[in-house]
Write a protein that binds this DNA or RNA. Structure first.
Lengths: 184, 184
DNA sequence: ACCTGAACACCGTTCAAGT
DNA sequence: ACCTGAACACCGTTCAAGT
């Protein structure tokens, strides 16, 4: 039985979660699949593309049903889902953010955020700026949070400065600004 | 005449700006200084530390005199200065953000931001959350902006979606939320 | 103290050759 | 079509030896 692209991505996520991003090399992944490094290039054009696929899959696996009925409740839900998705795998935030930086993968969350803000009655311009702002917030916070979490679990620092509500508080700051504009 | 640490950092910024982050290798930098790669390790313990020093220097070179008299004007000034500092060198945003992610370098801007928000009368808690939120915003926006700018100058895309006021608009969103809290 | 030269243990990627 | 085996052109870092 031969491998498919999804097998490579699945195994890549396994290596990522178990050994971290710095250990996720093409050679290491190939060894894990009992295959020559060159064999991977029949399923994926290069490492960057593989990492983008990994990022997409991490985000996809974190999807949850929508519950909130207000637009701002939905924003909190969306951002929380994205954060949890990234935190679910070691170095997940790093991978997703890097992929997004290069314009690859993980485009679905920002699209959904934008739709949500448009439905709230914001202009296309304000909605787009707000969607990007919120995404930057979620990305920045989560990378920092995950770095701190992984540092503490490695025994480097004793306690992290992250309360469970720290994320929501940053979010609320932006939402306050948005709620003003919605009412206009 | 022997090299000093600052010579290595200066030259590293030169290589970064001219050839980009992917070309800034220890071996390339050594060649540029007409020295063996191993010689660099007498001035810097490893590449990560060197990049943190590069990040600090990029931020330091961007410093400008303070003019604003209101606290929110000062926040805009501070964030604008940091953005301009990172945009001044090729891949500058990437380098500064990465260093910050690993808890190295570029700690001064966030400290100044925090002082500014405390002086505005915010509680220590809200001020800290806000300072991090603003930093994430500046970092996220600027990395994206620089990637777009460098892509267009490489001829990949024709026009960028970044108006000159796009940055300030995202900032204003957060500032609106903060201004509400200051008045309480 | 600062640098050289050589080595160690890796990378991502390509490509002819096999099945 | 999918994989092997070998190679190419690199990395960061270490360390004995020189001056």
């Amino acid at each position: 039985m031969r491998y498919h692209r999804s097998d490579i991505v699945d195994r890549a996520i396994g290596v990522l979660d178990e050994y971290g991003l710095e250990s996720l090399t093409m050679r290491r992944l190939a060894a894990e699949l009992d295959v020559q490094p060159s064999a991977l290039y029949h399923h994926v054009p290069n490492k960057q593309t593989l990492l983008a696929a990994v990022a997409d899959e991490i985000v996809r696996r974190g999807r949850r049903p929508r519950r909130a009925e207000t637009w701002d409740g939905r924003v909190v839900e969306l951002c929380g889902e994205l954060r949890d998705a990234m935190l679910a795998y070691r170095d997940g935030a790093e991978v997703v953010v890097t992929a997004h930086t290069f314009g690859l993968g993980a485009r679905e969350p920002v699209a959904e955020l934008r739709r949500c803000l448009r439905d709230a009655g914001l202009t296309e311009e304000v909605g787009d700026v707000a969607a990007r702002t919120l995404l930057h917030l979620v990305f920045g916070h989560t990378v920092e949070e995950q770095t701190a979490l992984q540092a503490t679990s490695a025994g480097a620092i004793d306690r992290s400065p992250w309360g469970p509500t720290d994320f929501e508080r940053g979010l609320d700051l932006v939402l306050d600004g948005l709620r003003c504009r919605v009412r206009d």
